[in-house]
Design a binder for these strands. Structure first.
Lengths: 222, 222
DNA sequence: TAGATTGTTAATCGATTAACAATC
DNA sequence: TAGATTGTTAATCGATTAACAATC
């Protein structure tokens, strides 16, 4: 599962940032493996793929690792993105800090409601979707973030693809269709809830030990 | 990867709903496999685990499958949930349709900002977090949805656990610690963005063929 | 030097697919 | 009946871990 590998790389980045914050400059495969919850050989194999070399005894350079992970995930290459759908979810994303080191830069925001068009959200003026095509073309936008209702999703996808977009981050709770060559990353929030529901059923009988010593880093994510 | 299985089950539910909407009452493992993008034997093995029986020639009963999937994911057993953090993201979730058939029922909403406390959001009055403990206890709440800033996350987790909660749906962009026995489902949005960044890098060279015939269901999700 | 940790290959594990007799 | 599809076992595949000589 290639996806599993990407999640590991993202998780490494997380922990490296934490270690760096603690003043560390190197880390061993063993320590990182412990934090992420995998074996140290898995970590070393991932690092070999990244072509980073470690040193026996001291481990790997945190700064070098971060650079190579950024590069592998293409996070330093800022790609232009537009967001369509300026409702609560759209606004939440616009104001959030996720754009930093994400590989994307939010360049424009669209909606089709007269009540929000023209308003300024975190420095971006909300435009009418009819301007989508020309903005995508003129500002070299390559990706779109879809925070519209499910019913409107496929229509906007068509517009985005017609304008030449190459990637879609979809929050609409519906399957969208896109031609081969256009990447779709679905962020199906309701699946997170269902997964929690299942997991809670599985552990229903387990006792809780709310002593702080029992606290563990939980690495589950989606 | 147990997580992969859960995602398959959720995906089956998705496609079964779609088939049902189209008036269908049965489906073969082959057809469902094609939609989800896996082999028919994987589907049949999943169904054996659910103890559902199909019939040669006609396949499986959609209604029966749905019931068993709901039951396996515990989606019919409505568990009380509270949401903490009534910002844009919190509001987006409160107003969203994800709660239906999710296994959870949103019972109360909390914040610590005087400006929102007392206001009504989709029928729920925003309360001060200091009431969290008593509400969780008196309304038999078992899970919490965390839509607070990263800096506040661990503090709220402590309150939730102190009040006896068993599951946390975490949207705060930080790792939170919880004792064994408390399920944490992280919804790290920034990871979705990074995954899109990586995927777009991988397909950068591929040509786009925006003919509608090329459109495919994209089953990626997180 | 001594020994902790890397780089790398082999062994293991689990998940997925192939195959096919049973059967509606 | 004929044949499509199930239920289930065996084969395959890929991912993870174990192991250990090389080395800083």
């Amino acid at each position: 599962m290639q996806r599993a590998r990407i999640f590991r790389l993202e998780s490494y980045l997380d922990h490296l940032a934490e270690l760096k914050l603690a003043g560390r400059t190197t880390v061993t495969s063993e320590e990182l493996a412990g934090r992420v919850g995998i074996s140290s050989s898995r970590v070393r194999q991932d690092f070999i793929y990244l072509q980073v070399e470690g040193k026996p005894r001291s481990g790997y350079e945190i700064g070098e690792l971060e650079m190579l992970l950024y590069s592998e995930l293409d996070l330093l290459h800022e790609k232009g993105m537009v967001l369509i759908g300026c409702g609560n979810l759209g606004r939440a994303l616009i104001f959030s800090g996720i754009w930093e080191h994400s590989g994307f830069s939010l360049k424009a925001v669209f909606d089709n409601q007269a009540s929000v068009i023209g308003s300024v959200v975190n420095g971006l003026t909300v435009r009418h979707v009819r301007e989508l095509h020309s903005v995508v073309r003129s500002e070299e936008i390559v990706a779109g973030c879809l925070t519209v209702p499910a019913i409107a999703a496929q229509g906007v996808v068509q517009m985005l693809i017609g304008a030449g977009i190459r990637g879609i981050w979809n929050f609409a709770p519906t399957e969208i269709k896109a031609p081969a060559g256009v990447v779709v990353e679905n962020q199906r929030l309701e699946q997170g809830l269902m997964t929690l529901s299942f997991a809670m059923k599985e552990t229903r009988a387990a006792p809780i030990r709310p002593d702080l010593e029992n606290y563990v880093h939980d690495a589950s994510s989606s």
